[in-house]
Design a protein around this nucleic acid. Structure first.
Ligand SMILES: Nc1ncnc2c1ncn2[C@@H]1O[C@H](COP(=O)(O)OP(=O)(O)OP(=O)(O)O)[C@@H](O)[C@H]1O
Length: 713
DNA sequence: GCCCGTACACTTTTT
DNA sequence: GTGTACGGGC
């Protein structure tokens, strides 16, 4: 996405232009141009990877603004913050100097829901300064609800807070009852329906009393606001003349309903997506939403994009072969236009460490010898722990990288502790925040935490709670030290009240620091994180805004909040990412890591109906991220016990003529450890007789242990 | 009754 | 490295 912007030159004025001065004809094909220029009413672009769907959306926004549509009448919905950021950046580049982009409503469904709910929260019985609970907060709160509930059944294996949370989440997003989620996804717990429903009712009460919403509530409450409050629906739907939704295949029932409600006045919806790239079914995403779009929006125009501009024909051939193995799909044409190059390479290595070593070496070669921009190289993986060996290797070589996936900066325990303090200063009824800060005080456990929280509520305000002696007596002797410490910290916080950054700095000067030092060997790193959090917070005057953006991970990309000093922006770094987070993006060179039979497809996927096809779509997404070079890598031994691994079925099932396989493959018997062996790294031959195999395993184990020890340091 | 140390299991994907 | 389960000790 980095070709230059076509600004009108004085001499050439083509029909494809409007007031933006952009030559739309020159940068779009005919079908794209039609979608951009004749896109009033409901429109659907259902097309394959790299066919220019996102580009269509971006230029459509530019076109609308150029045609006199006010930017605040346009709603652009995306799936991830990264995607939102990329598109907004692209649009403001296109319209540079026009300064109209600022008014555009663009972001994830959750962040748009947040903005709308802030305006109308009182209609729902919330205050507009409500707090957002992330998944971790939600789990912790549900844990309390489970503990408080008197369980009907004497079941000793009650589902964990994480499971209850995911049941609740799925039900809301799919807009179905708890019992149907249990039937479909957790049949083992069907008999616990009553208990679970009761616990979730308690959870809802607690959230209301705390003026808090979890991620799912953001969508659900927006839905209720739009469906039940006719005047608000009319004004919101009237306001947004144009709605554009990227990656529509990954919307769930709740999101789809929200789009339909917001479109209820003007009906100008541009939905863009690819059913072959639907990879969020665990979040209740449903491909039916895009496939049924024409029947939900009668008269919808459909546009076919059948040219892949992104990848070489070799990469596209492989991708088409991969996806053709899925039975359940909407057939699409996709032709390459880029010049031919080399076949995607399969790389087999004896171990995860060797795999990492190969990739790191190849990256150095590409960046130094071939002068590839490091930011045009990505390493993709199914699960975050697959990248551990590579991270280790990259650090060893001093290669900087950007990491996308797993725990985010704002989700780290110490960051969340500090945020909990800020939440309390802002709203003393925030139960989840109280529980969090009480949980790490000396002598205060769950029971004392219950008592203190009840006494705090009864006292009527934070200031009063800090003054009143009742809490001391309620807490008891053992908890006295803990409560005194906490009170001191909160006192400091209250006197620093005002800007979020000041409050964070007051915490950095409190007994919380001694707690960190006592608790964590890496306290210094954690303190550095908190220092960064403080300087990041300098950009905010409002604690509410700060907390909301941080909870939604909204602030992450645009404002450059990063975890460590080496992760500074403006440096072109290679990207390590989960495949899920790579959606919609592209790189010159892509490595896919850990393509083993047990790692990818993920074993758990087999338990779900349609799970394997979803894994294959995930592989399809990974393959189609590559523009020029693609490496498919797997270790022949991996895991904590250094067990034998076989190549993923996604490698073995495709037509061999689409892959550049290692030499040995032709001799390899299926199931042999030599399958696809790379001759360069074949020093560690595994004998198939018993003694030889044991010896080899021992050596690998020793190496692995060394690696894991160093990682911990 | 309540807290806290220790042993143990488990770790897909995201807002 | 994180969350839960259990038993000793205050
Ligand atoms: N008409 C065009 N002419 C030249 N290049 C184009 C054209 N349309 C799109 N491209 C380029 O093709 C690449 C893929 O486009 P884009 O990201 O919009 O595709 P997409 O359909 O959204 O892909 P995906 O489904 O994988 O997200 C980009 O580099 C884009 O700049």
């Amino acid at each position: 996405m980095n070709e230059c912007i076509n600004i009108k030159t004085k001499s050439s004025v083509s029909v494809g232009q409007n007031q933006t001065g952009l030559d739309f004809r020159a940068v779009l094909n005919d079908e794209q141009y039609r979608a951009v220029s004749e896109g009033d009413g409901p429109c659907l672009v259902l097309a394959g990877a790299g066919s220019g769907k996102t580009r269509t959306v971006v230029y459509r926004v530019a076109y609308l603004i150029g045609s006199g549509v006010r930017s605040d009448e346009i709603l652009l919905l995306t799936f991830t913050n990264k995607a939102a950021d990329e598109m907004m950046g692209r649009i403001s580049e296109l319209l540079s100097g026009r300064g109209e982009v600022a008014g555009l409503w663009g972001g994830t469904f959750h962040s748009i829901a947040n903005r709308l709910l802030r305006l109308h929260a009182n209609r729902l019985g919330f205050s507009p300064s409500f707090t957002i609970l992330d998944q971790d907060d939600a789990k912790a709160m549900i844990k309390t609800c489970i503990r408080e509930s008197v369980l009907d059944s004497k079941e000793n294996r009650f589902p964990s807070p994480a499971v209850v949370q995911s049941i609740a989440s799925y039900a809301k997003n799919a807009m179905v009852s708890i019992s149907s989620v249990l039937e479909r996804r957790y049949p083992d717990f069907i008999h616990l329906e009553k208990d679970i429903v009761g616990i979730l009712e308690t959870y809802d009460h607690k959230k209301r009393n705390s003026n808090a919403m979890d991620f799912d509530d953001l969508l659900l409450h927006l839905y209720f606001l739009l469906s039940d409050e006719a005047d608000i629906r009319r004004s919101v739907a009237f306001r947004f003349r144009y709605i554009l939704v990227d990656e529509y295949q990954d919307t769930n029932a709740l999101q789809d309903s929200i789009v339909r409600l917001i479109a209820s006045v003007h009906g100008n919806v541009l939905a863009v997506g690819d059913d072959a790239q639907s990879i969020y079914s665990f979040r209740a995403a449903n491909v039916r939403n895009i496939l049924d779009f024409p029947s939900h929006f009668p008269g919808a125009k459909q546009f076919r994009l059948e040219t892949n501009y992104r990848s070489t024909p070799e990469i596209l051939d492989l991708a088409n072969d991969v996806i053709s193995r899925n039975v359940d799909q909407f057939p699409k044409q996709l032709k390459a236009v880029r010049p031919g190059s080399s076949l995607p390479r399969v790389i087999s290595m004896p171990s995860a460490a060797a795999e990492a070593n190969f990739i790191a070496g190849k990256i150095e070669e590409l960046t130094k010898d071939v002068s590839i921009d490091p930011h045009e190289i990505a390493v993709l993986f199914r699960a975050t722990h697959h990248s551990q060996a590579l991270e280790f290797e990259l650090m060893k070589r001093g290669l900087e990288y950007e990491y996308r996936g797993g725990l985010r900066f704002f989700e780290r325990a110490h960051v969340k502790d500090v945020l909990a303090f800020l939440r309390l200063a802002h709203n003393f009824t925030d139960e989840s925040a109280w529980r969090r800060v009480l949980s790490f005080q000396q002598g205060i456990g769950e029971v004392t935490s219950d008592r203190i929280f009840a006494a705090v509520l009864a006292s009527g305000s934070l200031a009063q709670a800090l003054l009143t002696p009742t809490i001391e007596s309620v807490a008891g002797k053992r908890a006295a030290i803990g409560w005194r410490d906490l009170k001191e910290v909160l006192d400091g916080l209250v006197s620093a009240d005002g800007r979020p950054a000041d409050m964070i700095r007051s915490l950095l000067d409190s007994s919380y620091v001694s707690y960190l030092n006592a608790e964590y060997p890496n306290a210094r790193e954690r303190l550095e994180d908190l220092g960064q959090l403080a300087s990041f917070a300098d950009g905010y005057d409002s604690t509410v805004d700060f907390l909301a953006e941080v909870a939604l991970n909204d602030a992450l990309y645009t404002k450059g909040a990063t975890s460590t000093a080496r992760n500074r922006k403006n440096v072109r770094r290679i990207v390590l990412s989960t495949i899920h987070q790579s959606k919609g993006l592209e790189w010159d060179t892509v490595f896919v890591l850990h393509l083993t039979g047990s790692g990818f497809p993920n074993q758990r996927a087999f338990a779900e109906p349609g799970g394997l096809e979803e894994e294959r779509r995930l592989f399809y997404v990974a393959v189609t991220r590559a523009k020029q070079r693609l490496f498919l890598c797997y270790p022949r031994r991996a895991g904590f016990d250094g067990g034998i691994e076989y190549p993923s079925m996604f490698i073995t099932e495709v037509d061999k003529s689409y892959l550049d396989l290692p030499d040995e493959e032709s001799n390899g018997v299926s199931g042999s450890v030599h399958l696809f062996a790379d001759p360069d790294y074949d020093d560690e031959t595994i004998e198939l007789d018993e003694s030889g195999e044991i010896r080899a395993v021992r050596r690998r184990l020793a190496n692995w242990k060394k690696g894991s020890f160093l990682r911990d340091v």
